[in-house]
Design a protein around this nucleic acid. Sequence first.
DNA 1: TTGTACGCGTTATCAG
DNA 2: CTGATAACGCGTACAA
Lengths: 350, 350
Amino acid sequence: MDKKATIYDIAREAGVSTATVTRVTSGSAKVKSSTRERVQRIIDAHGYVPSAAAHALESGQTHTIGLVMPSITNPYFARIYSTIYEEATANGYYVWLFQIHDNDPIPPNLIDEIIRRRMDGVIFAGGIWSMERTGLADALTRLKHHMPVVTICPPTMQLDCICIHSDLVGCSRLPVRHLHALGHRRIAFIGGSMQLRDSSKRGENFLQELRALDLPDDPAYHVNCGYNAESGEGAVLRMLSGLERRRWPTAIIAFNDLMALGAMKQLKNMGLRLPQDMAIIGCDNQFFCSYTDPALTTVDLHPEELGSSAVRELLTARDRAHVPFNLMREATLIVRESCGAKLGYRKLSD
Amino acid sequence: MDKKATIYDIAREAGVSTATVTRVTSGSAKVKSSTRERVQRIIDAHGYVPSAAAHALESGQTHTIGLVMPSITNPYFARIYSTIYEEATANGYYVWLFQIHDNDPIPPNLIDEIIRRRMDGVIFAGGIWSMERTGLADALTRLKHHMPVVTICPPTMQLDCICIHSDLVGCSRLPVRHLHALGHRRIAFIGGSMQLRDSSKRGENFLQELRALDLPDDPAYHVNCGYNAESGEGAVLRMLSGLERRRWPTAIIAFNDLMALGAMKQLKNMGLRLPQDMAIIGCDNQFFCSYTDPALTTVDLHPEELGSSAVRELLTARDRAHVPFNLMREATLIVRESCGAKLGYRKLSD
DNA sequence: TTGTACGCGTTATCAG
DNA sequence: CTGATAACGCGTACAA
């Protein structure tokens, strides 16, 4: 951590101009090979590396894209981050991750920071619940003034930017149809922070699907809560203990796999056998789905593809006119054992 | 994305000098309040935010710390990242995450990038397996020339920097003693990429613990493999199918919870009851441990505390002489149900 | 309380 | 092939 050499030091020591040093470091222009070697030797001796700040100042580019999302402690977001990182790196960009907390407003100085750093673009990713976040719309508006913005979220708000999202309809339809085909009639839905019948696309779609199949649309079957394993436990407990046994649902669709995990634990604690007494479906196809007992049937939203598309759209956004648009990736049902489909199990329509 | 206003534009439009604009944005020095308001109005109108690059160039500080670690797709690292992020943010620093791939050498241009960006410090975190990574020592040496470096890893290599690590002895001792106290005598160890009896502290400690308790130290009980759930499945299958049933271990210690998860699945597939037929202990105390069936007994290495300590040490490193040292956080055994301790279950010493 | 002028480290342009 | 020099945007002495 001695005082670091600058391009001037290198130039002076090598007896050349700074321009020539740049020519060597950037590798591009023609330099007599003897000069190049001499300069390179000095560079190596000092461990000289050009400063990104000075370069950014001069070029106006930082080769950095910002990524704003909830904690990667949630493995769904970890997957999105990872894929964005890979795609960006492959294109010569670096990703800078900023975390926001669920239910908290977007910190205004976070937005400032992204602008201050003059990033070349930003991706906002967040589940449906965060889209109603205080300050989101303002944040995007400010950001859009400075750089291209891509969001990974349901197109429920008019965000006026490129929006890449998963298949919210399929995400509700697939599990409902699957359960219906297996003979289930009383199907419950737990999780999310949405108000069903209100703003949430996901909830709306679930209800719509139920109605399309002529299934009971009992408010007692909808538990509105968080989206982690603990909420899953609580949701099941609250729902079932508030219901006579004969009115219990025979299947539960969870907002995500985390909730399903909690729900399964609670159901087992209550002495229910899975999938015989209760079928369950999660969402996200997380790594642990194959390892639950029974293995969890779930919906894959293909977050990896959302992430890499987001990067590609962002990186090409500069060359296009600003035309906001939406892109959707279809959902896929991953059938495992938590509904009994593979056991040939079929619920009596009781 | 119009051309962005610079401090000059603001100054000109407000009829003041750039110095005054700085005084307003930095909020510090005395400015006549009428001037301040006028300038601020122009700033707001343009959405002007000073450039970090220019600032960094001028101040020599980026308020950025780099973090290099394996994919946060592994929830253990996700936890470390999150806590580092929080601690850094609380101190006015931002964290820039760089991912390295297991078993790959450290990409040299990654190191260049960190130096180029003139970060104020770097934290290297990585499990024991990555410490033998090609190029790690070189990378650290280069980096140390430019900025303070803190590593979160076992102090097995002479890295000559501040090293924060978890309790590798306790991490082996705790589970072995626990199982021993429950009556287990044949204890196996799966996972990691280490060569037991060789470089790995973790493996060494396990063997040492076995010997201290006079337990059989059978090479067939040590399966060297990866460290994810799939490896756990494979390890169990390979180990048990290579052994007559009467020689099977009665307990398995897994390198981490991921492996334990896979192991449990495989054990159940083979028709074993947990914990009656096989006890199992993981490591890391990940969120899913409470949700496995049976709930997984594990060791908590307190990665959160490692992370926040790392940040604190890094941020104060500049003010101290360069004295490399090690810091250790003790491990804790988290007893759940996968060994039967809570059921009062006690293995016959067969 | 405000303004002037220079340095921060690079790259690009233009001239040689 | 190489060198001089002007930006790039900001903060900070120093002066007024």
